[in-house]
Design a protein around this nucleic acid. Structure first.
Lengths: 131, 131
DNA sequence: TTGTACCATTGTCATAGTACATTAGGTTTA
DNA sequence: TAAACCTAATGTACTATGACAATGGTACAA
C-alpha cells in the first residue's frame, strides 16, 4: 500500500493517512476484502506510533470503509451492488441511518432548517462523484 | 461536574465518561455556555490519562454537543434559535458539512444511491421533530 | 488611556509503552 | 479423521509524557 506522509505539512499525520487510505478505497485501488497492514506493521513502516495508526483505523471503521476484528485484522469493507432507494432494507443500512441522524442533530444544533441539511448532502454527494 | 466511573465495568472508561457528559447536556443539567473542566484537570480528578479525556472531548465535539477552542477551553454548545436555510453562513456550518460528507460516504459504501441518503435524512429529521 | 510584550492555560498532535481478550491457524491427541 | 489444545498475531483500551500553537489575562511602558 503506497502512502506518502509529509511531516512538515500543516495537516496532521493521522489525517493525511486517513484521507489517503479513504481515497484508495473509494477509487477502488483497494478492493473489498483486501487486508490492510496490521497496525503495528504500518506504524513501523511509516515511522509512526501505533496509537496514531490505530486512530486512523478507528475512524475508517466508523466511516464503514473497513471492518476490524481482533485476530482477523482489518479488511476493506464489501461494496454491495448499487440499489435504488426503493429497494432498501431499512435494518441493513444502520450506518447510513446513524449518519443521517447525526447530520440532522448537527444541523438542528446549528439552528438551521431541514433544507439546509438536504442542500449540504447534495453538495457532499456531488463532491464524491467528481473528485 | 459529577461523574462516576467504574473501572471494573466492561464498558470502557472513555465511553462511560462520554455517555455521562452527554446525558448531563441533553438533560440540560449542563446548560449551553457552561465550561467543562480542562482536559488536564478532569484527567487528574478522575485519575485518568490526559489522552483518555481528550478522546472523550473529541467525540463530544464531533457530535456537536460541545465546542472547543484552544485557550478558551471547552464549553457546552449553544442551542440557537431556528434560522431559515437562506440565512446560512457557510463557514459556520462546517460541522454540518462534515456530517453530510460522512453520510454521503457511508451511503455510497452501502451501495445505495443519493436518494437513499436523502430519504434517510428526511426520516431522521422527522424523528427529531416528533420524538 | 492605549498599546504591547510576556505568561499561563488550553486543546491538539504525537510518541512510547503495557496489558488484555479474541481468534486464525497450526499441532497434538484421542 | 476429528476434536482438543496451543501459540502468536491483532485490535482495543489505557497510562504517561512531551511539544506546540492559539489566546485570554496581566503587567508595564508610552
Amino acid at each position: 500500500m503506497i502512502v506518502r506522509l509529509d511531516p512538515a505539512s500543516a495537516v496532521p499525520l493521522f489525517e493525511q493517512l486517513r484521507s489517503q487510505i479513504e481515497r484508495l478505497i473509494v477509487s477502488e485501488q483497494l478492493t473489498p476484502g483486501t487486508q490492510l497492514p496490521a497496525i503495528r506493521h504500518l506504524a513501523t513502516d511509516l515511522g509512526l506510533a501505533r496509537g496514531t495508526v490505530a486512530k486512523v483505523y478507528e475512524q475508517l471503521v466508523r466511516d464503514g470503509l473497513v471492518v476490524s476484528a481482533r485476530r482477523a485484522g482489518t479488511v476493506v469493507a464489501p461494496r454491495p451492488e448499487p440499489k435504488a432507494a426503493s429497494a432498501i432494507d431499512p435494518t441493513a443500512s444502520q450506518a447510513m441511518n446513524e449518519a443521517a441522524a447525526h447530520l440532522a442533530v448537527v444541523t438542528k444544533q446549528l439552528g438551521l432548517a431541514a433544507d439546509a441539511a438536504q442542500a449540504a448532502l447534495t453538495r457532499a454527494w456531488a463532491a464524491l462523484e467528481t473528485p
